[in-house]
């Protein structure tokens, strides 16, 4: 799938400003990618190119960093991001079953986005709310002490 990428002038200017700020910072590449992702939500190829040119490093170095870390997205995300915690506490309390249920309902496997781009489903590491295990987050909001039965209700909350 080729993802379309519209670079608005505002975004381009923001990126430029962010890069200028990092000009004299030692070891700036990760910071630059983090800024770029804040601006665009993901890391389109032309943006990676621009960063490579700015810091005068080969594009593969940028790509190497972008693919090393799980938080950098090379594809755009769905409107709502569901992250099911598979941290130890949550796993022990059955979060695996909740992930399975979501995969079945959304007809995608973890790490993917639904066709209508409404949901992106992810399995995450411990998000630090083990007291509420098992937990998942939707757009950063935490839902705790879940059971498989809660899944339908949860999804309908985020489906127009």
């Amino acid at each position: 799938m080729i993802n379309s990428f519209d670079d608005t002038p505002k975004q381009a200017a923001e990126l430029q400003a962010a890069l200028d700020e990092l000009k004299d910072v030692p070891g700036p590449l990760m910071k630059a990618l983090q800024k770029a992702q804040d601006i665009y939500g993901w890391l389109p190829a032309p943006v990676q190119n621009k960063i490579a040119e700015y810091f005068d490093v080969p594009l593969e170095e940028i790509y190497g960093i972008a693919t090393f870390y799980s938080q950098f997205n090379l594809n755009p995300n769905g409107k709502h991001k569901i992250g099911v915690c598979l941290g130890t506490a949550c796993y022990v309390k059955g979060s695996g079953d909740i992930l399975n249920a979501l995969e079945q309902k959304l007809k995608i496997s973890a790490g993917n986005t639904t066709q209508d781009r409404n949901f992106t489903l992810e399995a995450t590491r411990c998000i630090g709310c083990c007291g509420l295990a098992p937990v998942l987050t939707v757009n950063g909001e935490v839902y705790g002490k879940l059971t498989v039965d809660d899944v339908d209700k949860l999804l309908s909350k985020y489906t127009d």
Binding site: M30, L33, Q34, F68, Y69, S70, Q71, F72, R125
Partner: peptide, 8 residues
Amino acid sequence: LRLGAGAF
């Protein structure tokens, strides 16, 4: 501060 990006 330097932020990680999700790599154990």
